[in-house]
Nucleic acid binder design. Sequence first.
DNA 1: GCAAAAGTGTTCCACATACACCCATGT
DNA 2: ACATGGGTGTATGTGGAACACTTTTGC
Lengths: 251, 251
Amino acid sequence: MTATARTVPADSASADSSRADAASADSARISLAVSTVIFALRADADATAASLRLPLVRRIREPFKGRWALPGGPIEAAESLSAAAGRNLVETTGLRPTYLEQLYAFGDVDRSPGDRVVSIVYWALVRSEEADLAAEGDNVRWFPADDLPDLAFDHNTIVDYALWRLRTKMEYSRIAHAFLGETFTLSELREVHEAVLRRPIDPANFRRQMEGSKAIIATDQLLTGGRHRPPRLYRYNASVELTDNGPLTSS
Amino acid sequence: MTATARTVPADSASADSSRADAASADSARISLAVSTVIFALRADADATAASLRLPLVRRIREPFKGRWALPGGPIEAAESLSAAAGRNLVETTGLRPTYLEQLYAFGDVDRSPGDRVVSIVYWALVRSEEADLAAEGDNVRWFPADDLPDLAFDHNTIVDYALWRLRTKMEYSRIAHAFLGETFTLSELREVHEAVLRRPIDPANFRRQMEGSKAIIATDQLLTGGRHRPPRLYRYNASVELTDNGPLTSS
DNA sequence: GCAAAAGTGTTCCACATACACCCATGT
DNA sequence: ACATGGGTGTATGTGGAACACTTTTGC
């Protein structure tokens, strides 16, 4: 992460650097794209537990023709980066994200054979119920996030990083709500944590942490129809942000 | 942070999205730039404490001609994003960064009047001693990070976010070393924390936290010449990363 | 000796963990 | 009745905050 810059005489400073935010003929050759890592929790094949899954699209042209890749595309002149990512997501899956955040800008010189592409990558969470009716076909398919094939470009690296961010953020943020609907039981919320973090969590302690955090509000409703004692339904407390992104909450 | 995307028929998915990572005529109109928020700790005017400062460059052309702005410029075809940021930093200040990390990609449609510019912003830390001999002139000047004038573009927002990231990261990472030299006393390290976080820290507890973290190694040398009991010199433990950036440590 | 920073010891408290135990429901 | 998940109570441990106290230097 440390730059490999060399020292240079201090005098050469101001002339070049005053071109701040101006584009030259050089940078016009670099093309810009947006990609999105879309996570959903979906029932496993054996239906015993939910697991993290993400949709990929099959590339229909070179480079990496036939390989699976993250959904992505160019940015239109009149849309912001997050709007481009959101549009992208809708076009690929037909789903609306409940959470969308910029992940990282990937711009290594050789990440795309032939041309130079800088990809601004977003990551998103969609509700499980919605994900079940998501578009799937020959060119769009959902894969288990922890067991992907060899993807096009540096997309395996990108997914690894997105997974790391999701898991890190799950530990200190209220992000799990984004996988669930309007109301939910504490067990459902706990199962989201367990599926993402891949470890069991003590229900008793989880309850106290959540109730102490003021991130959820108990409703007066119980979920009946289960096989056992009906659990209370909770609602997300909209007055607390899902994640603390500092001064960048509104972009 | 939530996208404002609308739902769309699921069928329209694969055709467009398979253009992943390809650039169209649209995105060729968007120019790409790199900017850098460079932090150093420098002695205050009254020399009693150090404070966070950063170098800005004066814009010599429209838009925002005459306004102060973050150092930045275009990305060259053969350099990575971090290399562009590092070069940028050297050209502006003549300094070598001890820490350099991508901050965020800013790409709102109207952030630059007239044209559409996406700026990939890095933030950097440089050593205090080095910063004292940094280039400064009519078009490059250091400002206190917490008291900036009205900057060009959305650069005030960018600095606010960079400050938030620096302060957040200072709390859970070993990043403070980047402001210091090869060896340092615990007081110096603590003063870095105090200056960045703007609050006093108990020296006794700070010592135990640092020693317990294994991030620093005691040398057998004491720093003599002070007015009081000579403190021990410590060295940064290179075997632990400054920050945990997950699977992205080497880019 | 005195001032002041370096460095050590100890108490207190918040909070996470582990786990025993009671509650309410469907079968 | 009993199995099972919902929900409460409680002991133990860990780590930070607060602060008293000792050590070592310059003057």
